[in-house]
Computed example of a mutant assay.
Amino acid sequence: MTTYVSKELQAGLDAVRTVNLKRSSRMMVEANGKAFRVLRFWDTGFALDMADAPNLRGFVDLYERGFHLYQCLIVASAEEGGQMIYEFKRLTAVHTKAPLDFVMDHPDVSGLLEERFL
């Protein structure tokens, strides 16, 4: 039995794999006002489709299902199987509220128990 796969067949398999990754991915990267679908994401980087992705570099924003998750400083590192691999130089989570730089005297109360329950 041989494990040889023709170039045409391998290209077809790669194309189907890319379409499935695009369909299942919910993450998007936005750079310079343009959005690109993230095919794979891991803790040190992410991958975009080579056909869609320019050679990105610098600050980008990562979104998942429309929610802004991260601000990133990235650099293109390699091309692998029709995908462009980007690595993070910095990955910062986005918060909905600004962090406090002081101690609150009376923190917000989420509920109040009456004396009979104490």
Rank of each mutant, 00 (worst) to 15 (best):
V5C: 10
S6F: 04
K7M: 08
E8I: 03
E8R: 09
L9I: 07
A11Q: 14
A11L: 12
G12R: 13
D14E: 15
D14K: 09
D14Q: 14
A15W: 07
A15T: 12
A15G: 05
V16L: 14
R17K: 15
R17L: 12
R17H: 14
V19P: 00
N20Y: 05
K22Y: 04
R23H: 14
R23K: 12
R23T: 13
S24T: 15
S24G: 06
R26V: 10
R26H: 11
M28D: 12
A31Q: 02
N32L: 12
G33A: 13
G33P: 02
G33R: 03
G33I: 09
K34T: 15
R37M: 05
L39D: 01
D43R: 09
T44M: 10
F46Q: 01
D49P: 01
M50Y: 03
A51N: 08
A51S: 05
A53C: 04
N55G: 08
L56H: 07
L56I: 05
R57Q: 11
R57V: 07
G58P: 03
V60E: 04
L62R: 02
L62G: 02
R65V: 07
G66Q: 06
F67Q: 11
H68N: 03
L69T: 06
C72Y: 02
L73E: 09
L73T: 09
I74D: 01
V75Q: 09
A76E: 09
A78F: 08
E79C: 08
E80W: 10
Q83N: 04
Q83A: 07
I85T: 05
Y86C: 01
Y86H: 06
F88L: 03
K89D: 04
R90C: 02
R90K: 07
L91F: 06
T92D: 13
K97G: 00
L100S: 15
M104G: 01
D105Y: 08
D105E: 12
H106Q: 10
P107R: 10
V109S: 10
V109F: 13
S110D: 10
S110V: 11
G111W: 08
L112G: 04
L112Q: 08
L113S: 11
L118M: 13
L118S: 14
